[in-house]
């Protein structure tokens, strides 16, 4: 058992429906773990419980030795867990650079009245944020679009901006919710390279949900499979590919002649 990140028997019930039942996982620092499962298996619900959007019916989320279950979302982000969204959620009417700059706000030291009175100390902090945010755009190849409205970007660029924005909160654990959704094979391949790169450069631990099997199998070191809210398998990509329970969950029961 490690102290880095652990989910202990998480349960999420919506009325009579149990979306996630008894989900546990422990992730080591630096690991790249995948969470797969058929549609409606409860994968995003797990992410929502980790990031505080949902408070689990029972169970605990442990992060660096602290119980963070049910904390407000922004406090969990401030503790170093960032996420992207399955359906892109950018600040569409703000520029690309501003989108990334928002992520720096939780660490701002100036008080609001310093901003209102235009104090030089706030100006310097603002300038620093601007430069650092620009750095993240360069890293994700979006620097030439810095002054464009985020809503005007192409789909693949929007996906990259989501990652840039999450990285700018300086997380230790990054949760990617279907980062390759809607991408063509070429883009998906580039994304896999990008994920590897940012993980190495920022020393990240990554936990991701994905439907694209090629992407998951090629990228993740360990995979967890959910079906109807229940964890049915866990192991290396090779183990998962040959696991009869997983094949059954995805393809259904073979007909007995």
């Amino acid at each position: 058992m490690n102290d880095f990140f652990r989910l202990e028997s998480l349960v999420m019930q919506f009325g009579g429906l149990t979306a996630v039942n008894d989900f546990s996982i422990s992730i080591e620092p630096g690991e790249l773990v995948g969470l797969i499962g058929p549609n409606g298996a409860g994968k995003t619900t797990v992410f929502n419980m980790i990031t505080g959007f949902l408070t689990p019916t029972s169970g605990r989320v442990l992060w660096q030795g602290e119980d963070i279950t049910g904390l407000p979302v922004h406090q969990i982000t401030a503790r170093g867990i960032a996420r992207t969204f399955q359906n892109i959620r950018l600040f569409t009417d703000m520029t690309v650079l501003e989108n990334v700059m928002v992520s720096f706000h939780h660490k701002i030291r100036s008080r609001f009245w310093k901003a209102m009175l235009g104090m030089p100390s706030h100006g310097r902090e603002e300038q620093r944020i601007r430069e650092e945010a620009y750095g993240f755009l360069q890293e994700l190849n979006l620097a030439h679009l810095a002054d464009e409205k985020a809503g005007s970007l192409a789909y693949g660029q929007q996906r990259r901006l989501e990652i840039a924005r999450a990285l700018a909160t300086y997380p230790k654990l990054l949760l990617l919710d279907e980062p390759a959704a809607g991408m063509n094979p070429q883009e998906t391949m580039e994304l896999a390279g990008l994920v590897r790169e940012i993980r190495k450069r920022h020393g990240l631990t990554i936990f991701l949900i994905e439907h694209d099997m090629k992407f998951v199998m090629g990228l993740c070191e360990r995979i967890k499979v959910l079906d109807y809210g229940i964890s049915i398998a866990e192991g290396t990509p090779e183990e998962i590919q040959t696991n009869p329970d997983v094949i059954k969950a995805y393809l259904g029961e073979p007909k007995h002649a």
Partner: peptide, 27 residues
Amino acid sequence: KLVNSSFGRAMKAIREDEIAAKAMGVD
């Protein structure tokens, strides 16, 4: 001044998408 500061950006982020703003650490 307020609107053009980091605080103003946080306000606009809430206007654009409150869920995403929260996930980026804005209260």
